[in-house]
Nucleic acid binder design. Sequence first.
RNA 1: GGCCCCUUCAUCUAAUGGUUAGGAUUCAUGGUUUUCAUCCAUGCCAUAGGAGUUCGAAUCUCCUAGGGGUCACCA
Length: 462
Amino acid sequence: MVITRFAPSPTGYLHIGGLRTALFSWLWARKNGGKFLLRIEDTDLSRNSEDALKAILKAFDWVGLNYDGDVVYQSQRFDVYKDYIAKLLQEGKAYKCYMTKEELDALRAKQEAKGERPRYDGRYRDFCGEPPAGVEPVIRIKAPREGFIEFNDGIKGDIKIAASEVDDFIIARSDGTPTYNFVVAIDDYEMGLTDVIRGDDHLYNTPKQLVVYNALGFKPPKFYHVAMINNEKGKKLSKRDGALDVMEYKKAGYLPEALINFLVRLGWSNGDQEIFSIEEMIELFDPKNINKSASSYNLDKLLWLNAHYIKNSSNEKLVELLKDFGVDLENSDKIDAILNATKQRAKTLVELANEINKILNTPKEYDEKAIKKAFKGEALTIIKDFVELLKSSDSLNSKEDYHEVMQKLVEQKEIGFGKLGQPLRVALLGSMSGPGLDEVMYIIGLDEVEKRVKNIENFLKG
RNA sequence: GGCCCCUUCAUCUAAUGGUUAGGAUUCAUGGUUUUCAUCCAUGCCAUAGGAGUUCGAAUCUCCUAGGGGUCACCA
């Protein structure tokens, strides 16, 4: 049984780095028919974990990640941690340290001044004397003083860290609350985790957590440390780089499958394959194929994937999605015509909505260059004649019907298609680009075509 | 600064001692299209640098450089 987890600290939203590690963990659990658990690391009581959890679940829900069992809150497990602390104290594997924060700061400053690595000097490690009055002690765990702490990382291979790098770190603050590295080890053990996939930034926490595992006699899980995601310049991702919050991608018009596909390929690959359905990801994912090096995210590729998924979405699905972007086609009788005309040219749902509005709404203004280029010579007469020809046609029930009329006019007048198409396009859409005119006309209908041609006639006169 | 990790086209990556170093995105060019986009084709572009080991190195070793992480009574 493979059991993985996602264990965010409550920061208020889920960012894309977190989503990627969550995705990796989720995929690995699902692939193996295991469990994916969710735990909120809220030992720091000053943060609101309810809101943070809601934000995370909202994002999970959007991208389609689900978790098993109940959410574990560390803030509700303090009794458990207390028992373990008492046990370690009793067994002499942890001890009370009466050094005050001020003394600790002073020690650190002194060590730094000497160019040494700041670390606790172990002065209370074997203390048996009379404790100083008025000092609430912290609890420190006894870390090995010699040798190495070693483990095998599923991504980076064998990691060996000198014991001198790990001091007797604090497992309980002077107010009695336990600290991060201590509770993580306990929870990961008690939740039965077999595989811990997390960010690279936790690599140095691992030896500390191993000290806890060791002291408690727990068998540690397999660790996988995934390298960070950098921004497009190869630097650390920060709020300045834009959408860190996963839900921002929803607002920007990305499809969840595009974002997930994008993220799974950031640091992981399966040969040359670029497009993965969720089912394929589950089938193919293996952490052994996760890259060791950090990756930069590249908006162009995400955009390309998003365009791909829009193009390949069903029209029914797009109708639903577009509702969030101010376009409601539910009651339209031309859904397929509208979406088939537009979904090829949109990279995001925002763009798709704009494309649709451009067709559906009578243009309020015209592109100046387009006017100049398209309305030379007989252009206005040509499109007016075209409208007359449309009116005399007996059937206009498909884009093909409209196309035939266009064809007929061009032949009658012995002109190139562009002589009709360019001015007509500007009249109908306000600019020189857009979907096929036969499609546009079929969508908006004869009356609207006539109206738009009249509009541009008035515009040109005025 | 100490310690640890990392380094293949601009970007994501493939190639686990033998390939003309492959694919994708971007970009450029051409085709298709009345236009734009799509689509198709073609092209440009990389093993950070230096020493070894080896018949043979992107791949193994060492050094250098660069990037990142971490050194809390935060998580």
